[in-house]
Design a protein around this nucleic acid. Structure first.
Length: 237
DNA sequence: AAAAGATACAACCGCCTAAAA
DNA sequence: GTTTTAGGCGGTTGTATCTTT
């Protein structure tokens, strides 16, 4: 009973992929597209399990991968998204075209973590490390600055759509979205920054977390800054 | 120049959920 | 309804490469 396994574990290769294996995988997916990883290894003539093929393709072979160093903008966006989402690497990767969750996770652990710690910021909580407050700037809003390099100002927003007369059905759709984040990055915010009034009543992350009384709550000061912001409608709470 | 230590990242592991048998 | 696996995810490890001593 149950599904048969996709491969015999004893007869699958492990470890680093060879160029030949890569080539087989690429050719197969080019010809047949991504699909059933379960049947792919056999069909492509690979002695690998489907899971391994999927990982190799997604993290390394996909043609739309960016590779190369992360830009300052990407750094900043990762930090902001991490502050909002935590270790949800796949969600973070979804906001960085051409980057994979694995790549971002590695980058976070090897670069950004250290960068934050050196700034006196706890990489998990995004709050000042104990006894480090004097080393960093604390803005009047209550948000921390990273030696004036990074802005962790966070709020939640719905994806931007062209403003148009809202029909009742559209309004219903909009308000039913749950904590959907704006598809805006620091590289695209110049044209897609969403104001708090785009979809009616929205609240910032602080409100969402029940921290309305916090100094960090800036619901009333969200009008026109071209930084990444997130909003969620009250209906979605 | 060699050894030791630090860093970067590809790949694996284990867990969870949904789907197939 | 139950069992088993695929697919997806985050955490961790192994190892090649780089830097420091």
């Amino acid at each position: 009973m149950g599904r048969p396994p996709c491969c015999e574990k004893a007869h699958t290769n492990k470890g680093a992929w060879t160029k030949e294996e890569d080539q087989r995988l690429i050719s197969y997916i080019k010809a047949n597209g991504e699909g059933c990883w379960r049947s792919l290894p056999k069909a492509a003539g690979l002695l690998r399990c489907g899971k391994s093929c999927r990982l190799r393709w997604i993290n390394y072979l996909r043609p739309d991968l960016k590779r190369g160093n992360f830009t300052e903008e990407e750094d900043e966006l990762i930090i902001k998204l991490h502050g909002l989402l935590g270790n949800k690497w796949s969600l973070i990767a979804g906001r960085l075209p051409g980057r994979t969750d694995n790549e971002i996770k590695n980058y976070w652990n090897t670069h950004i973590k250290r960068k934050l710690i050196s700034c006196g910021i706890d990489p998990q909580t995004h709050r000042p490390l104990v006894g480090e407050k004097q080393q960093i700037g604390i803005r009047a809003t209550g948000f921390t600055t990273y030696d004036n390099e990074l802005n962790l100002d966070l709020s939640i927003s719905l994806p931007y759509v062209q403003p148009q007369p809202a029909s009742p059905s559209i309004q219903a759709k909009i308000t039913s979205s749950t904590l959907s984040m704006a598809a805006t990055t620091t590289t695209t915010t110049t044209t897609t920054t969403t104001s708090a009034t785009t979809y009616g009543q929205s609240v910032c992350l602080c409100c969402h977390l029940g921290l309305q009384t916090s100094e960090a709550c800036k619901c009333n000061a969200i009008q026109s800054q071209s930084v990444l912001r997130y909003y969620a409608t009250l209906d979605s709470m």
